[in-house]
């Protein structure tokens, strides 16, 4: 797990590959193409790239129109603007009609870093998850991002993909598969299960290794799809380990933690600890400082595991 890759870099490269494979793939951005990495696509396919300028609402509507005209549009900007600024456009012009639009939001979560709380989306997964017809993906690393973007392109319907800014540890193999709606058990265990998404999956794997030294057997289930959630895998983990710790770079309200709790409350109530932002906004700092400050590290996951074992 020593190699680190930014998910947005893989996104940019994958878009170019998709562009070569399918002339119906078009890309939109809102003046952040250097940051979201859609610039790579714009250089190779300038006629299929539409910069909307700083106008996310119109970008989203144009993407919907392009989809209605038979194209496969990918629309990108930062997560705060994609899911927040253009929320109602996503609702009305994309989700409600079930339009074949892929919204790929980079710079999700607090690891945006120095730009501060105004630019750190801690609510996008919750907002997007609440929309009927919307599929919500949050890959763990570079390789899974490539596979997830390909899966999103192949799927006919609206998809929201959350990516990050910084480099994150590689968890998956280069040639990994991605099936929308399916989670992956990355490490088996019997005492508790970490159910994680995004960059927190790498932290959970570290935490599980630390716990193993203490003779605690922790399972790690990664959910690259937040919606539709892999109900079977979540319930199986709860039944077999009897305790769940969720972890996400997002508010504990409405995102992965919320989705897992909803699933468990209906199907297999077991003690749950939710690791994430405790109903608060972020602030300026380095990504590493912020992850430590808000309790999103392997060490914090170990503590959460110890708390939940005491509740079992």
């Amino acid at each position: 797990m020593s190699e680190k890759i930014a998910t947005r870099d893989i996104y940019g490269q994958t878009l170019v590959e998709l562009g070569r494979e399918n002339s119906r793939v078009v890309v939109l951005d809102a003046d952040l193409s250097g940051s979201t990495k859609t610039k790579l696509f714009s250089k190779e396919f300038p006629e299929r790239f539409f910069n909307a300028g700083i106008a996310e609402a119109n970008m989203t509507g144009m993407a919907a129109g392009l989809a209605a005209g038979g194209m496969i549009p990918f629309a990108s900007t930062f997560a705060v603007f994609a899911a927040g600024r253009a929320f109602e456009q996503i609702r009305q012009s994309v989700a409600y009609p079930g339009m074949n639009v892929k919204i790929v939001a980079t710079h999700g979560g607090i690891t945006v870093g120095e730009d501060g709380g105004s630019h750190q989306s801690v609510e996008d997964l919750a907002i997007m998850r609440s929309l009927p017809k919307m599929t919500v993906l949050c890959p763990a690393d570079g390789p899974e991002t490539g596979a997830a973007i390909r899966a999103a392109a192949a799927y006919d319907g609206p998809v929201y993909v959350r990516l990050g800014r910084g480099k994150v540890p590689v968890v998956f193999d280069q040639d990994c598969d991605f099936t929308i709606g399916k989670g992956v058990t990355l490490r088996d265990g019997s005492d508790l299960t970490f159910i994680t998404t995004g960059l927190m999956t790498a932290e959970a794997l570290q935490a599980a290794a630390i716990l193993a030294e203490e003779n605690v057997s922790a399972r790690v289930v990664h959910l690259g799809t937040i919606k539709p959630i892999d109900i079977d895998l979540v319930l199986k983990a709860a039944r077999e380990t009897g305790a769940v710790v969720t972890a996400e770079e997002h508010s504990v309200i409405g995102g992965l933690g919320g989705a897992v709790c909803e699933t468990l409350a209906e199907g297999c109530p077991v003690p749950v600890e939710r690791v994430g932002l405790r109903d608060e906004f972020g602030q300026s700092g380095t990504a590493e400082e912020l992850l430590a400050h808000y309790g999103l590290t392997a060490a914090h996951l170990v503590e959460a595991a110890e708390r939940i074992l005491a509740r079992k």
Binding site: G65, L66, G69, G70, S93
Partner: peptide, 16 residues
Amino acid sequence: QGISQAVGLAMAARLA
């Protein structure tokens, strides 16, 4: 929102 979608439809028509 309709006019933005119309813009997208016009772009798609031109591309195709």
